[in-house]
Design a protein around this nucleic acid. Structure first.
Lengths: 200, 200, 200, 200
DNA sequence: TATGAATGAGGATTCATTCAT
DNA sequence: CATGAATGAATCCTCATTCAT
């Protein structure tokens, strides 16, 4: 469970927002271990006690931050996915990749705060969710497209595509290697294509 | 440098080893933030003060752990690299991947302690080193094999191959997805092949 | 600056006062090096953490103690200085000496804690300040009284008078030698008189 | 008690000397509280354990340092005192002051290490000795010179002269104020003269 | 005697959390 | 609801001292 109470009043909502925003800033600047609740409270212009009106403990703040990243990411992605549905396979892949890069880029700070500042093993909960949903989506996509290789092959392809895509897009956004975006997209598309099982 | 003093007596070496071993266990079990020096000392059967005979501070222990992982990994890999040198390209790739999986698998605990338990942003200099050396090696390999596409393409291919290979092999070893090893190797080989620039 | 936050509530002020008071007692009893923050906290009936609500570190407590001593000393001295202004030189000197002895005597414990328990080299900025202000005052007094020997002589006289007066009054108060106060005052007055440059 | 054993063998004596010398350096550089025995041992090129062959504890080192300062100071002073015996009063005073300044100046580092780096309250033992001996000498001098004011006056004069002389000469040597030595000596001589009881 | 590895109590400081106001 | 003072266990680290070799 994340939030202690889901505040309806506007002022409360504002307080929560300010805490979360402060959390992101403090996390980005000081890292997970030095992101003390007191610092977050100060940064948010809120008393330490107030934090515990809305969050059960420190980790709940991080969980909420993650949840928001995921939500906003999903929201930013939705239209692209819809658009992709009506395109031929190769183009669809490209459209989605572009959309992912855009979405990640818009929340680079948040992303860095979570991905680079929190140990993997602690990120689990919410992020694992996303990955699962992503995997399911891709797996279903295979089925829809009539790519019915044996199940093991589909599972494998799904796993590899998810891992590669997630990792590469995140690192591309966060590390900004000296690679032109169109080249990166083309390469990634080719990799995904190569990993997609061929219909029998 | 990591060590405070380079121990001469045998007892010292044992103590250092016990501290490092305890560090790995504690890291693996409790994660970076809860890996307190006192816990490590207790786990090592050593007094807290003893740690500071050999390590400048807590991070130095982590650094040493990382260094050992890297060293042992490199050692385990060397013969395979030599063997690979005399094989045709495709087979060489496969031989190296297999060797990497073996090497990583032998130190899965260590690997998990570092990769999953320490925030990326703190993962020490030593690891960056490895990545750099790996990149250089691959880049040179391209040149040696007469693959002289333009430099940008080589840089890009290097970056993508390193990121993909590192991430996939590590996740494969640590997450043990339900994928047959030979299939995984074949897939990864294919991805790498696909990313390798074609000679003009 | 010394305080971390300037307390608004009354309770805060009380806590600060209790910490400072405990600091004085602990300093007096155990000396600077054994005046641990934990001991001070215990003596103050306060948790260790509370100290750091109001003081940046241990030295800040000492600095605050010193500041208070200096302030109270200055306050106790002011009326005497005013009274002295309207007296002939010799008597004025005597009046001031008496006032200094009174002022120091009122804070003997504090004085001992600082002067005898803290190494000279660490005796904080605040004390240097006082000495500087004292020197300036005396130097100006010379000028006002039309004692215009050459500057070197004034500087020298100032230095010697400050050193002698400070040291003798402090030691008289702290060591309580078997000397009648009126005799001590007379002697010191004579010494100061002897060190005062004669007007040309 | 200071030394654990008074070593006769040459090598032992050398070790003690090195420890003491290292103690002075470390004290001067780091101050009393940060002058750890380990640091002293390292600086002396000796093992920590060896220190405890020759000194009961850390304070014994400081005590020994103090003792040496006092001894060397006394040694440096003796001839001057002898010379002074045959001079008229005023000149004798001057000769002694000059000798004191020389003696202190030769051991400025040692002096600073002790006087400025160790809390007064901890200097007691050995230094109090010197002061006592000095007081006795002056008191006797008064008697010898037939200055037989009442005992209280002698006691008072002795106390004041000792305090003033000790403090001023030490501060003059350590703080090096912008005062010509001959002027300083003349002033101090005048002060002492003024404090000396007049024969009835 | 000398060594230096080992000790462990103790020190300064932090920070998630509570609770009286 | 909000405040912010207070808490106190836990953290990293130091250092005088001991003792097996």
């Amino acid at each position: 469970m994340t939030a202690r109470r889901r505040p309806r009043q506007e002022r409360s909502q504002q307080t929560v927002d300010r805490i979360v925003a402060a959390g992101v800033r403090v996390l980005a600047q000081h890292g997970y271990q030095h992101a003390s609740t007191n610092r977050i409270a100060t940064e948010a212009g809120v008393s330490p006690g107030s934090i515990y009106q809305y969050f059960a403990d420190k980790d709940a703040i991080v969980a909420e931050i993650t949840r928001r990243l995921v939500d906003e990411f999903a929201a930013a992605l939705t239209p692209a996915l819809r658009r992709a549905a009506s395109r031929p396979r190769g183009e669809a892949t490209r459209v989605v990749i572009e959309a992912v890069l855009d979405a990640l880029g818009q929340h680079a700070d948040l992303l860095r705060a979570i991905v680079d500042r929190i140990p993997q093993a602690e990120q689990v909960a919410t992020l694992q969710d996303v990955r699962t949903r992503l995997s399911d989506a891709i797996f279903n996509l295979f089925l829809i497209q009539g790519i019915d290789a044996d199940e093991d092959a589909l599972t494998r392809a799904t796993w590899m595509i998810v891992e590669v895509s997630e990792h590469l897009t995140i690192r591309y956004v966060l590390d900004a290697p000296a690679i032109a975006r169109e080249d990166f997209v083309a390469d990634l598309e080719r990799v995904i294509e190569g990993l997609t099982p061929t219909p029998r």
